[in-house]
C-alpha cells in the first residue's frame, strides 16, 4: 500500500513539474545508475581480471595455437587446418582415445551416481552410529588420487594381490584386472565407486532435506516404498542429481590422473620423468584417454599446436554435451526454477 501510494505521488509530481523536470530527474537517475555500475565493476574487477587472465587468455591462445605448428620454444608458424586435418583423418590413436573417454562418460558417471545414491539412501535411514558410517564411507574420498590408484593396482595385482587370493578361496579364477584390456576400465570404475564419498555426501544432504510430511502423505495415499522413492525422493533431489551428472560428465571428459597412474604402475615400469608418456594407455591402448593423448602430443612430442587443436575440440564437445544435458534436465529450465 505504501509503495503504491508513493508511486502515484511521484507520478503526480512529474506531471506537475513538466518535461524539463522529468529530464533532470532522469539525469540524476542515470548518474546514480552509472555510479552503481562503477562500484559494481570496481568490486568485480579482481574476479574479471582473473577470468580474463586465466580463462579468456588461455582460451584465445589455444584457439590461435591450434592453427599453428608450435613447440613452446620457437615462434608459432601458421599451418591453417593441418592440425585439425590430422586430428579428424590421420591420428592413429584418436579413435581409441575417444572411445575410452566416452566409455568413462557413459559407464563411470552413472555407476558412481547410482552407487552413491544407494549408499546415501541407506545412511539416511541408519539409526545406529550414523556419524561413524558416514565417516567410513566418506573417508576414501580424502585419499589423494595417485595414492588410491597405486593401492588399488597392488590390491588387484593378479599374482600377489589379495583380491584374486580371496576369489581363489571360492574357486574363482580372478581376471588380470588392470593388466587386461577388457578389465582395465571396469577396474577403474570399481575404484571410482570406492572413492564416491564426495558424491555420496551431497546426495545424503539432499535426501535428509526431503520433507518427512511428503512421505507421510504418500504413505496415507497408499504409496509403497518404491513409489515413494519414484514420486517423492527423486523429484525432490533432482537438482542435486543434475549437478552430479553435469560435474561427473565434465570430470569424465577430462579423465587423466587415475588412468595414467594405473597404466604406469600396472605395467611394472612406474617412474617419473623420462618415458612416462610411453606408458600411457597400458594395457595396449585400453586406458588411453583423450586428455592423455593430448598430453602426450603436447609435452612428449613437442606438438603443442596439435595439442591445442585437441583442446579446442574437447572444449567444443564438452560445451555441446553439457548444453544438451542441461536442456534434457528439467531442473535447469527457467519455468522449473520459477
Amino acid at each position: 500500500m505504501i509503495a503504491g501510494a508513493s508511486n502515484v505521488r511521484s507520478g503526480r509530481l512529474r506531471l506537475l513539474r513538466g518535461p524539463g523536470a522529468r529530464s533532470a530527474t532522469a539525469r540524476r537517475g542515470d548518474r546514480a545508475a552509472r555510479r552503481r555500475l562503477g562500484v559494481a565493476m570496481l568490486l568485480l574487477a579482481p574476479a574479471l581480471l582473473g577470468l580474463g587472465l586465466f580463462y579468456g587468455y588461455p582460451l584465445v591462445a589455444s584457439v590461435f595455437w591450434s592453427f599453428t605448428r608450435y613447440d613452446q620454444l620457437a615462434s608459432p608458424a601458421w599451418v591453417g587446418l593441418l592440425n585439425y586435418r590430422y586430428l579428424f583423418t590421420q591420428d592413429p590413436q584418436i579413435g581409441a582415445a575417444v572411445v575410452n573417454t566416452l566409455w568413462f562418460v557413459v559407464v563411470l558417471v552413472p555407476v558412481r551416481i547410482v552407487c552413491a545414491l544407494i549408499v546415501a539412501g541407506l545412511l539416511a535411514r541408519a539409526r545406529t552410529a550414523p556419524g561413524l558410517w558416514r565417516t567410513i564411507f566418506y573417508l576414501p574420498a580424502l585419499m589423494p588420487p595417485v595414492a588410491s590408484v597405486v593401492a588399488f593396482v597392488f590390491l588387484f595385482n593378479p599374482g600377489t594381490g589379495p583380491v584374486n587370493q580371496v576369489l581363489s578361496w571360492f574357486g574363482v579364477q580372478g581376471p588380470l584386472w588392470f593388466n587386461d584390456p577388457a578389465w582395465s576400465k571396469p577396474s577403474l570404475v570399481i575404484l571410482g565407486v570406492w572413492v564416491m564419498g564426495d558424491l555420496m555426501i551431497i546426495l545424503l544432504a539432499a535426501l535428509l532435506e526431503v520433507p518427512r510430511e511428503l512421505y507421510e502423505a504418500a504413505s496415507l495415499d497408499g504409496a509403497g516404498a518404491w513409489h515413494q522413492v519414484r514420486h517423492v525422493t527423486l523429484p525432490t533431489i533432482s537438482p542435486v542429481i543434475a549437478f552430479s551428472v553435469v560435474t561427473g560428465v565434465i570430470a569424465a571428459l577430462q579423465y587423466f590422473t587415475e588412468a595414467a597412474v594405473a597404466s604406469g604402475v600396472a605395467s611394472g615400469k612406474a617412474t617419473v620423468g623420462s618415458g612416462t608418456a610411453t606408458l600411457l594407455g597400458y594395457p595396449g591402448t585400453s586406458l588411453l584417454t583423450y586428455t592423455e593423448l593430448l598430453y602426450e602430443h603436447g609435452f612428449a612430442s613437442f606438438q603443442f599446436g596439435y595439442a591445442s587443436a585437441m583442446a579446442v575440440v574437447l572444449f567444443a564437445i564438452t560445451a555441446t554435451v553439457l548444453g544438451l544435458t542441461i536442456r534434457r534436465i528439467r531442473v535447469f529450465r527457467a519455468e522449473e526454477v520459477r
Partner: peptide
C-alpha cells in the same frame, strides 16, 4: 605370459 608378467614386481 601376460598373467605371469602381471604378477611380477616393479622394474625399479
Amino acid at each position: 605370459l601376460q598373467a605371469f608378467t602381471s604378477g611380477l614386481g616393479q622394474e625399479f
